[in-house]
């Protein structure tokens, strides 16, 4: 034995009386029991990188509303007297080739990028959750047909589809969002379907059914809430993808149209003048990367927090 040898004689006779147990102790569960979400939040808080991501997004959201007013310039007024200026006390991020204030354009771009990213992701969630829940819950032929449609759409390259849609549809912000969600929801639908199929045979669903709950109620009151974890993670990781797509399309001249500013169009302008004004690339490029990074680390952090088994 590892503990010091103990002298049996030293133990007193009274110690050999039967142990009287407090009955309530027998059922006491060792270790603090915490709810799933509380536990997940506790793990998420420990992830410094993910907290940094949350901070960045909050900052960007704040600046997207108040950045323009702070600078005192608007994002669209040309001023040919001061084109292509370096950052200065007047224009903190400098001016572009039409003399517009890059600082206020950057924050206007933040508004557009965040709006497009979050809107596209939310629409994906709504369509994907309904589609996936219905397919997974009913199974059989319904599932077969619904998922076949999804598979066919999914086999088309995402960006190619978006580009082709942008060619056909009239230009505009909402067109962009619709084009992005046209096949974007499928990933979500697949994840929700898989989860729902797993859950629909669980006993609490059976119990709800015996109690007379109808399909709608079971699906959206019992099944969907229990798939919330994966839905949230997918949602978070969809946003940087949407922001990238917007920037990519704007870069190709298919996205946001002038005079609206987006990080994609600003990047496009800056790359054209890369040789002469390389710093113009810095602001839009930096913020696109920072935003995508922030959402990616939040998504990773959420996945680790919600599914501790997958944590590596």
């Amino acid at each position: 034995m590892s503990q010091p040898e103990l002298n049996r004689a030293e133990i007193e006779q009274t110690d050999f009386e039967p142990l009287v147990r407090d009955e309530s102790d027998a059922e006491k569960i060792s270790g603090e029991s915490t709810s799933y979400w509380k536990d997940a939040w506790r793990r998420f808080k420990k992830n410094k990188l993910a907290l940094f991501g949350v901070g960045v997004i909050l900052f960007l959201a704040f600046m997207s509303f108040f950045g323009g007013p702070i600078s005192g310039y608007d994002y669209y007024t040309n001023n040919y007297a001061i084109t292509n200026q370096s950052p200065s006390a007047d224009h903190w991020f400098g001016t572009d080739n039409l003399g517009r204030d890059v600082f206020s354009r950057t924050w206007y771009g933040a508004k557009i990028s965040l709006f497009i990213g979050i809107m596209a992701a939310l629409i994906d969630v709504v369509i994907g959750v309904i589609w996936g829940a219905v397919a997974g819950y009913f199974g059989g032929k319904v599932d077969e047909y619904m998922m076949r449609i999804a598979d066919i759409l999914y086999s088309l390259p995402y960006l190619l589809v978006v580009i082709l849609l942008m060619v056909i549809l009239p230009q505009g912000l909402w067109t962009l969002i619709i084009a992005m969600t046209f096949t974007g929801w499928i990933n979500m639908a697949r994840i929700v379907r898989g989860q729902v199929m797993q859950l629909r045979n669980e006993e609490y669903v059976l119990a709800a059914r015996t109690l007379g709950a109808n399909s709608n109620r079971i699906m959206f009151r019992h099944l969907v809430p229990n798939t919330l974890g994966p839905i949230l993670v997918t949602l978070t990781l969809t946003i940087p993808n949407a922001i990238f797509t917007e920037a990519f399309l704007s870069y190709l001249g298919l996205g946001v149209q002038a005079p609206l500013a987006s990080w994609g169009t600003m990047t496009n302008d800056a790359i054209g003048a890369l040789q002469y004004y390389p710093y113009q690339l810095f602001f839009p490029a930096f913020f696109i990367c920072l935003t995508m990074l922030a959402f990616n680390v939040i998504g990773d952090g959420m996945r680790d927090a919600l599914d501790p088994k997958s944590r590596k």
């Binding site: 503990q3 103990l6 133990i11 110690d15 142990l19």
Partner: peptide, 10 residues
């Protein structure tokens, strides 16, 4: 059958 001694001494 636990006794008082069991709780404190291996």
């Amino acid at each position: 059958y636990a006794m008082k001694v069991c709780e404190n001494h291996m």
